[in-house]
Design a protein around this nucleic acid. Sequence first.
DNA 1: TCCTCACATGTTCTTAGGTACATGTACTTG
DNA 2: CAAGTACATGTACCTAAGAACATGTGAGGA
Lengths: 181, 181
Amino acid sequence: MSLRYGLLGLLAEGAASGYDLARRFQEVLGSVWPAQHPKIYAELNRLAQEGLIEVESEGPRGRKAYRITEEGLVAVRGWLRDTEVDHTLRMQSLLRSFFFWLMEPDDLRRHLDEEARFFAEAAARYEEYAKAKDRGEFGDSPQTRSMRIAIEAGVRLYRTLAEWAEWAKTVPPNSSTTTHS
Amino acid sequence: MSLRYGLLGLLAEGAASGYDLARRFQEVLGSVWPAQHPKIYAELNRLAQEGLIEVESEGPRGRKAYRITEEGLVAVRGWLRDTEVDHTLRMQSLLRSFFFWLMEPDDLRRHLDEEARFFAEAAARYEEYAKAKDRGEFGDSPQTRSMRIAIEAGVRLYRTLAEWAEWAKTVPPNSSTTTHS
DNA sequence: TCCTCACATGTTCTTAGGTACATGTACTTG
DNA sequence: CAAGTACATGTACCTAAGAACATGTGAGGA
């Protein structure tokens, strides 16, 4: 269901083709909600059938730009206002952490190094985005303000995860009955 | 694939039945990796067929306790050591935040209040868990140490999300061209 | 003894998600 | 003008996930 409302939400910003949406999903929403083009085209056709979107224009190479309809807008708004948020984290990094005790200490250290590096880089990338937004590079529409909020979540979450991975490295793997040197 | 290794990881701690595993998935891993019993029983049968687990004992009411095999251990360890981590966040809260601009300011404030409350409560719950572990209530096996690391991630992530939701409330929704009172 | 609840394992069906396959067009550059 | 790249949309197939349905047992209390 989330893909559906993701598409409607993006189309609420302005008309776009399946190709456009696929790229935006990969670039902007990719780390939050992955979606490949087959799924997107299929869902667009379904949405059009249900009247939540409609073809705005047809361009070269069979390009079809969709526009959101009134019903579509009502549907996204209803989703945002009235449906319960699914709060599951579904993070593989976390799932794996339950099983760290199965790893060789060396492998675990290497793993946590990589994790910390990845998360720190992601945090930095989002931070750059945030700064660019704050410099006014993306303008100041309500849409970009929402994007700014989402980016802030990315910055904070990835920073937190990087710090967590660093912290995890300091946890001794075996029993703490420290053999006094 | 993650469910498969989640099950193997849990079975590496000791023999358990599908029923046991379903409960543990709900209680412990539920917020990180949801799995209902039909999926679990099916996957257990597949794992048994492939020789990664085997029936350890049969109990009352058709209960079948599974034990992980050597190959099974090798498989989880291989997954942990050699496969790339999928870092997608897949958080609906974040997806929704991209579309906050579609919400009425009042609805958005209410939404963020609820989000902040949920995340703060979750953080507190995990914190309690962490404290209990640190008091030694779960013993001090390698497994519980890994659990402690996972719990720490929960504490930090939920705290971060709660703070983010609070921060988001301070972002003005419309253009910042402040009409000087 | 009967009833209820927790235990215990499954099948079936539908939807979601992902990979691979398939096709064709417009533009740009050598 | 040939070749490559980016644009553009789809189908087919397979696996994952989730909801609903289905069945039966053992233990404990009323």
